[in-house]
Amino acid sequence: MGFKLLSKLLVYLTASIMAIASPLAFSVDSSGEYPTVSEIPVGEVRLYQIADGVWSHIATQSFDGAVYPSNGLIVRDGDELLLIDTAWGAKNTAALLAEIEKQIGLPVTRAVSTHFHDDRVGGVDVLRAAGVATYASPSTRRLAEVEGNEIPTHSLEGLSSSGDAVRFGPVELFYPGAAHSTDNLIVYVPSASVLYGGCAIYELSRTSAGNVADADLAEWPTSIERIQQHYPEAQFVIPGHGLPGGLDLLKHTTNVVKAHTNRSVVE
């Protein structure tokens, strides 16, 4: 069995187990497998329904001669939608809004960016022009300005110390501490036991640490421990890039980060 097929099978099995364990909360999309990078042309966006009122959005972007996937989250909030992270750029984010209108038909009224990198804030200006209120932590807003990236308009308070959590509509926002970046936030959907790890969490097929220019490698494993301790009931975990899975993604990420750190020390 090929690795790609095995990865998709694991996603399907995880979703099936969740649907059985929580039949009222989960209505997993039966329309197909989780979209992969090879299936999404740059400039297009796919939506994948995880649970009743919960979707991931998947886009792709060219970077350094390669094409990478990027995940975000959409959560229903009454007759409105909360968006977590842009679709990595203005063109993708405009396509995301169009796809949401086509498939869901509810307005996106608020959006949260989970850290300051372009795959999370690139497209904020498109959201703002569409009347979406954009939010991020003060740290993310400051770092985005320093980096020359787009800056969300509103500040999220109460997320300055490791372990801080605040309720934001249908989700809980959690600051686990520094990891992929010093400002990275985690998003949890309690009604569906869905954990969105953003770039602080890796997919299972990833074996290298990737972009760690703004990471705190020493603190990252401790931050992941905080996530595990705060959300032990999480059933569906979405990484910032690639295929979702279960809580095993947290341990896998820790292993990859520690291996990278150990290699760096040896070198």
Rank of each mutant, 00 (worst) to 15 (best):
R128W: 08
S7G: 07
A15K: 06
D164Y: 10
V187L: 05
Y175K: 01
A94C: 04
A90R: 10
S181L: 02
L106S: 10
L97A: 00
L247S: 14
N71C: 01
S155L: 13
N71T: 08
I104Y: 01
T253N: 03
T114Y: 02
G122T: 06
Y48N: 15
H115M: 00
V132H: 02
A179G: 10
Q49K: 10
R76N: 05
S137E: 03
G245F: 01
A130I: 09
Y175Q: 02
T109A: 11
S160I: 11
S155R: 12
G177M: 03
A87R: 00
G210S: 04
D52T: 11
S16E: 06
S155I: 13
A218H: 13
P23Y: 10
I40M: 15
V126M: 05
D164Q: 15
F116D: 03
T60W: 15
E219H: 11
Y196N: 03
H57K: 00
G105C: 05
L195Q: 00
V194N: 02
E157R: 13
V67I: 08
G158Q: 09
I74E: 01
T14N: 06
T254P: 05
V126T: 08
H154A: 09
V54K: 01
A66P: 06
Q103R: 14
S161M: 14
G177F: 01
V166L: 12
E150K: 05
L173D: 03
M1A: 01
L173G: 03
G131A: 07
P41G: 14
D77G: 09
I201C: 04
E233Y: 12
L159F: 06
D248F: 09
V265P: 10
T60G: 14
S22K: 08
S22M: 14
F168T: 02
D125K: 08
Q103K: 14
E99L: 14
W88V: 02
A192P: 06
V42N: 12
T114G: 01
I227D: 00
Q228P: 06
P170T: 08
D214M: 05
P221K: 08
S161L: 12
R76Y: 05
T36D: 14
H57V: 01
N211C: 05
T60N: 14
L249Y: 04
V266F: 13
G89C: 01
A111N: 06
L185G: 03
A234E: 02
G65D: 11
V112T: 05
E233H: 12
Y48C: 07
V54F: 03
S139A: 13
P152T: 04
L249F: 06
S223K: 01
V194A: 06
F174H: 02
F236C: 08
K251W: 12
G163Q: 08
E150P: 02
V146N: 12
I17N: 08
K251S: 11
Y196F: 14
H117I: 01
D77P: 01
G158C: 06
R167E: 12
D85R: 00
L10S: 14
V11M: 05
A21S: 10
Y34L: 15
L24H: 15
G198R: 03
K91V: 15
G210V: 05
L9K: 11
A218R: 12
G78E: 09
S193T: 10
A213W: 07
G65H: 08
G2E: 14
L195N: 01
V266M: 11
E33W: 08
Q61K: 09
A94N: 13
L5M: 14
H115K: 00
G240T: 01
H57Q: 06
